[in-house]
Design a protein around this nucleic acid. Structure first.
Lengths: 345, 345
DNA sequence: TGTTAGCACTCAATTGGCGCGAGTGCTAAT
DNA sequence: ATTAGCACTCGCGCCAATTGAGTGCTAACA
């Protein structure tokens, strides 16, 4: 499967050209590039070879060639050149991310936005998923006549308004009791039996309407044990429409539908173990609808504490070099920041 | 500007037909509708009149007619029939909204999703904007070595991670002091002088590293006074692609760009005073890009406490009756729920 | 033996002519 | 006041002819 140097150069030239123009590339166009002084006839022979080897495809007899999935794969693995991101962009990015770190979810949201503006492709990102982190504090704060706010602090803050009647004093007592029982535990340590135990204990010690108590404990259980609802951020989906391969409106609509459906996207950004940047080209994608696209993604994670994924979706003829460079830069920045935040000492 | 009964019926029939088919409507098509037993020739005369009066437009000589903006406006004001939403849909909606009320922002998010699924047009919604509500509680909870979580409870919960070194005990003391000074106040009552006052006081009473203290107070000030970042929810933007008027991909891309740009959308859903459902048809829209669309919106609000807007965006030939009915239903449900929640007694 | 000029061939895309049909406005009859 | 009838308009789809980009193959060349 290895190619001699000339074939590699020709394949690279073809793919570079095709990435730029989206038009099938002819032998004449390549022979004009002076860096390899070969006639179009020679190129034609080589192209025929490359086609036979599976790296190129000829849409029809009198057209030029376009890369096959295998061609792109070879390009990504061994041909593409390095892309240098401008220093101004780099420092802009650093500033932007550093001023936005006050909430981790926001960090990823901005990182995804930056990835999409650097590359001008669509991006999908999942906020870091907390795995079973420790409960630091539980609080109940009345906010209006019939409403009390339940607040659970782990590494994040989750809150939930509960529509029920309870007076301020009872709130305070109940919070204290809940903190005594639950803070320091991890979500996995809490099961329904534990909640019922607390319920019985509370009924003895405090005089709270049992119905109200059950309500609150029920919500508490939900809030603590619920998998953090994975927030998904999509940027620049519309960029899909810019590529000639999606002038076909129905195809475009299908992809846009896909990019609006959080359920699919969750699967898409489910983190597998892999580290580093990974590309899925065309048919390599698990989702049929993406089989004319490429998806380049990077996992960011910190041990078993939090993890997530940031993915760029574009046409197969995307500017891989630029996308790889951008994701590399961004994921390094994220890891730096997460590293500092997540450090429990 | 008033039309006789026959003209009204004809105009209504034309617009109804056009809304369904998106094709220019000819006289023959109308004359076939049995409810007015008129020949196509008669219809033709009436159509010529309606065109002269500005309600209809003839794209070219040998085509039928399509409604003008004025035609749609007349239709919306006085012609369109009532639309009945099925009972199952209504009760589904009620269930969905009622189980989702735990956070107000979520309520609107779901309401917008429902509006979009009922009508199958794009929707834009802004979460209710709190106006200057009372601070109920402030808390500082350490969550990792270098990080403390600042939590401010008003009618909502705002939280923010602060990357600074402070021990648990100091946290607790500082929280107590902050609550003593600030809870019960409204955001507008807090200015920078007040914060500085607290800073001086704290420096005397507590032994906290001044740099850390300044950091925390600074973030607190930001968090309390910052306008709640208006969350904007967009649903079903892709539906734009379904309408023949947007088969032109560039036009579609422009609209989708618009619907991805939060800044524009904020302006779009800025609440003006008006109550009830409002339609902006074609050129009536302030944004040039929407001049081939209609936007039907409803404000929900509760006195001066919170307000927001939910808007449906579709082609000018949208099913106004259905959209009006859906928004009416949804806004009633929202008002009911908000009314209960916001009740301070 | 590898390279290249030349040529015949293929096929998508463009162009222009033609006819169809939906729809109109006008006129004259009812 | 309504309508049947007719001439006219004009967008659209169809078809054939033309164009041109690109190929594969062959024979000549270094």
């Amino acid at each position: 499967m290895d190619l001699n140097d000339r074939k590699r150069k020709i394949l690279q030239a073809i793919i570079d050209e095709y990435i730029g123009t989206a038009e099938p590339v002819g032998s004449r166009a390549i022979s004009k590039k002076e860096n390899l002084g070969l006639s179009s006839a020679t190129i034609r022979n080589e192209m025929a070879d490359l086609e036979e080897m599976g790296y190129l495809i000829q849409p029809h007899t009198s057209a030029g060639r376009i890369p096959s999935d295998a061609g792109y794969r070879f390009y990504v693995n061994s041909l593409m050149s390095n892309y240098k991101i401008g220093m101004e962009a780099v420092s802009q990015l650093r500033n932007l991310l550093e001023t936005r770190v006050s909430q981790l979810e926001k960090l990823i949201k901005y990182a995804a936005a930056i990835a999409s503006s650097l590359t001008d492709y669509a991006t999908v990102a999942a906020a870091p998923k907390e795995n079973n982190s420790e409960i630091r504090k539980i609080d109940l704060v009345p906010v209006s006549n019939h409403t009390v706010m339940l607040i659970v602090v782990t590494r994040n803050v989750r809150s939930r308004a509960i529509n029920t009647d309870i007076d301020g004093e009872s709130c305070e007592k109940l919070s204290k009791l809940l903190n005594a029982r639950l803070s320091g535990l991890k979500a996995d340590d809490i099961d329904f039996a534990k909640i019922q135990e607390i319920q019985r204990e509370t009924e003895n010690k405090l005089s709270i309407n049992p119905k109200v108590l059950i309500d609150i404990l029920h919500f508490l259980y939900d809030t603590v044990t619920a998998d953090a609802e994975t927030e998904i951020y999509v940027n620049n989906a519309k960029s899909i429409l810019r590529y000639p391969e999606y002038k076909n409106v129905e195809k475009a609509e299908k992809i846009l539908s896909f990019l609006e459906d959080k359920e699919n996207l969750k699967k898409l950004v489910e983190t597998d173990g892999k580290d580093g940047i990974e590309a899925k080209i065309g048919k390599e994608n698990d989702f049929e609808i993406l089989q004319d696209c490429s998806l380049v993604s990077v996992n960011y994670s910190l041990g078993d504490k939090a993890s997530g994924k940031l993915a760029v979706i574009g046409p197969k003829r995307m500017n891989y070099a630029k996308v790889f460079a951008s994701l590399d830069l961004i994921s390094n920045e994220i890891d730096k920041i997460l590293g500092y935040y997540m450090n429990d000492g």
